[in-house]
């Protein structure tokens, strides 16, 4: 629902409402691979509750999810699977690359890992850390919400 005709007040308000709705209940698809997955689970747990943002339901099926948090290192064997899961998600969808290994290959600059998940899927937010603590991940998620609300990421 990206507006192509700016200045139309009614469409802008509906667009804003759509953006608001999208950010307030973004369902993540679990793509927890390695250590970052544990921190992602900790973010969803009681201490750093993700439910206050409406995101505690991690949808197992990508068809019902709109956010894919790639948490962990993506190996060569896993890359086609990652792409397939991303393709199965319906639009609008966003990708957060969580951790150093997902963003750039991390400390493992070798034959086995894809050096950065953006080689395979388009990424919106990169969250650095090894592993990023739940606070960093939440900052990343909230930055994504901000960007969507402001219209910087148009889907």
């Amino acid at each position: 629902m990206a507006t192509t005709a700016p200045g139309n007040l009614l469409m802008t308000t509906v667009d804003k409402a759509a953006r608001w709705a999208r950010t307030r209940s973004m369902f993540p698809a679990t793509f927890g691979l390695a250590c970052c997955a544990i921190e992602m689970m900790a973010t969803g747990a009681a201490h750093y509750d993700l439910a206050r943002f409406g995101m505690e339901v991690f949808r197992a099926s990508p068809r019902q999810a709109d956010l894919m948090i790639v948490a962990g290192r993506v190996s060569q064997k896993m890359a086609p699977v990652l792409r397939q899961v991303f393709d199965q998600m319906p639009d609008p969808k966003w990708v957060i690359s969580m951790g150093a290994c997902a963003s750039t290959g991390g400390m493992f600059n070798n034959y086995a890992l894809v050096q950065g998940v953006d080689q395979v899927v388009p990424v919106d937010i990169y969250v650095p850390g090894c592993p990023p603590g739940p606070q960093s991940l939440m900052h990343g998620i909230l930055t994504l919400h901000d960007k969507i609300m402001k219209g910087e990421i148009v889907k």
Partner: peptide
């Protein structure tokens, strides 16, 4: 298995003994 293979044993040969712990 093998979907998380990271080549850590190969990386260990590149890092020295005190860096090995990070790997």
């Amino acid at each position: 298995i093998g979907y998380l293979h990271t080549g850590m044993e190969k990386t260990a040969e590149q890092l020295n003994f005190s860096q090995g712990g990070t790997n």
